[in-house]
Lab assay of single mutants.
Amino acid sequence: DVEPGKFYKGVVTRIEKYGASINLNEQVRGLLRPRDMISLRLENLNVGDEIIVQAIDVRPEKREIDFKYIP
Rank of each mutant, 00 (worst) to 15 (best):
Q54G: 02
I52W: 15
V58G: 04
F67M: 03
I56N: 03
I15G: 00
I70Q: 08
Q27G: 14
S39W: 13
N23T: 14
V53S: 00
I15H: 01
S21F: 15
I52S: 06
E26M: 11
S39G: 15
P60H: 11
S39C: 15
E26C: 13
K9L: 12
V11K: 09
R33W: 04
S21C: 15
P34Q: 12
I56F: 10
K62C: 11
P71I: 08
E50S: 13
N44V: 07
D36P: 07
I15L: 07
G10Q: 01
I70R: 06
N46I: 09
K6H: 08
D57H: 14
E3S: 10
E43N: 08
D36N: 14
Y18G: 09
V58H: 05
E16Y: 15
L31A: 02
G19F: 10
A20G: 02
E43V: 08
K68P: 03
I65R: 02
I56E: 01
D57I: 12
V12L: 02
V53E: 00
P34G: 07
G5Q: 04
D36I: 05
P4H: 06
R14N: 09
E61R: 06
K17N: 11
E64R: 09
G10K: 00
G10E: 01
V53R: 00
L42N: 01
I15W: 02
E61W: 10
M37F: 04
N46P: 00
P34N: 06
E16G: 15
G30K: 01
N46Y: 09
F7L: 07
K9A: 08
D1R: 13
V47I: 13
P4I: 15
V28K: 03
R41T: 13
I15R: 01
M37Y: 03
R35S: 12
R14M: 10
V47E: 05
I70V: 13
V53A: 01
R33D: 04
D36H: 13
F67S: 01
P60N: 10
R29G: 14
N23Y: 14
Y8T: 00
I65M: 05
E26P: 14
R29T: 14
E64H: 10
I56P: 01
D49N: 02
R14C: 09
L40G: 06
K68Y: 07
I51K: 00
I38Y: 11
I15Y: 00
A55T: 05
M37R: 01
E26V: 09
Y8W: 02
F67P: 02
R59A: 04
E50W: 15
Q54I: 12
L24T: 02
K62Y: 09
R35N: 10
R41C: 10
S39F: 13
E61A: 11
R14L: 08
L31C: 14
Y69K: 01
I65A: 07
R35G: 11
V53H: 01
L24W: 04
L42W: 06
G10V: 08
R33N: 04
G30W: 05
K62G: 08
I15E: 00
K62N: 10
T13R: 03
G5R: 03
F7I: 06
E26N: 15
L42C: 06
P60Y: 12
R59V: 05
V53F: 04
V2Y: 10
V12M: 00
N23L: 14
K17P: 14
D57C: 14
V11W: 12
F67C: 06
N25M: 06
G10F: 08
M37H: 04
G10L: 06
R59G: 05
S21M: 15
G30T: 01
Y69C: 07
D57R: 15
L31W: 14
E3C: 11
G19M: 05
K17S: 14
T13M: 09
G48M: 03
I65D: 03
N25D: 10
D1M: 14
K9R: 13
V2P: 05
A20Q: 01
I22D: 01
S39V: 11
M37T: 04
F67T: 02
R41P: 04
L32T: 01
D1K: 14
P71W: 08
Y8L: 03
Y18M: 11
R59K: 08
P34E: 11
I51S: 00
L40C: 10
P71E: 06
E3R: 13
V58C: 09
I65S: 03
V58N: 06
R14Q: 12
R14W: 10
I52C: 15
A20P: 03
G5A: 03
